[in-house]
């Protein structure tokens, strides 16, 4: 998939940055819409208006901060987070909503960011894995994942953590079945499930 022009300067050239930079050449043909769609203010959303194929600037509330992004109508939230905001904690694995590695919250509800269009976010608040810890201090679920060796290759981990943190937010005393139910959508090819379940139950105990 073609990368979008990020329009941001990079501190240094990482592999990812290089790939994105290479993508800029194709994005050069994209005609940028000049108007900024301020999604926080409904009245400034274009009424009955067509948003053209090219990139358009939008505002999005991510982890409590208002961010400005340049997205095309076809840009998914997962791509926008990773390519535009450099928030690569959210992983894209299946890219079809089947594995939930890309789980983020929209207004507190877990969703697949790979199957959500960035334009669909509107005024809803996005919470990503980067917004789960408080600065350098990890969330108890994250600490428990380390303690219980609940990660192997790590690709499913951010999504798993998002599902488990969401569970504990709404159920402080979960059973094993509750944890299994909450992580039903999260696939782990390494088979870390038993450790994920133990970690979540142990985090629930510690958070009491």
């Amino acid at each position: 998939m073609k990368k979008l022009a990020s329009g941001k300067s990079k501190k240094s050239i990482s592999r990812r940055g290089f790939i994105r930079g290479a993508g800029l050449t194709t994005a050069g043909t994209v005609v940028l819409n000049s108007g900024v769609l301020a999604f926080e203010h409904k009245e400034s959303y274009p009424k009955g208006d067509l948003i053209a194929e090219g990139a358009v600037e939008i505002k999005m509330k991510v982890n409590g901060l208002s961010r400005t992004l340049s997205v095309e109508p076809r840009t998914t939230l997962a791509d926008a987070l990773r390519d535009q905001l450099d928030m690569t904690g959210t992983k894209i694995v299946c890219d079809r909503g089947s594995c939930s590695a890309c789980t983020v919250y929209l207004d507190g509800k877990p969703i697949n960011s790979c199957m959500t269009m960035a334009l669909d976010v509107g005024q809803q608040e996005v919470t990503t894995i980067e917004g789960i810890s408080s600065g350098e201090k990890l969330h108890p679920v994250q600490e428990a994942f380390i303690e219980h060796d609940a990660t192997q290759c790590g690709y499913c981990t951010p999504g798993m953590v998002m599902s488990c943190v969401h569970l504990l937010k709404h159920n402080s005393n979960p059973t094993l079945d509750d944890v299994k139910h909450a992580t039903r959508g999260n696939l782990c090819r390494c088979g870390t499930y038993p450790h994920v379940f133990k970690a979540t139950l142990s985090a629930a105990e510690k958070m009491k």
Partner: peptide, 15 residues
């Protein structure tokens, strides 16, 4: 993925 434009429908009639 092909490029597409986006129409934000305001009502059933509009859509």
């Amino acid at each position: 993925m092909n490029k597409f434009s986006w129409y934000e429908a305001k009502s059933v009639e509009d859509a």
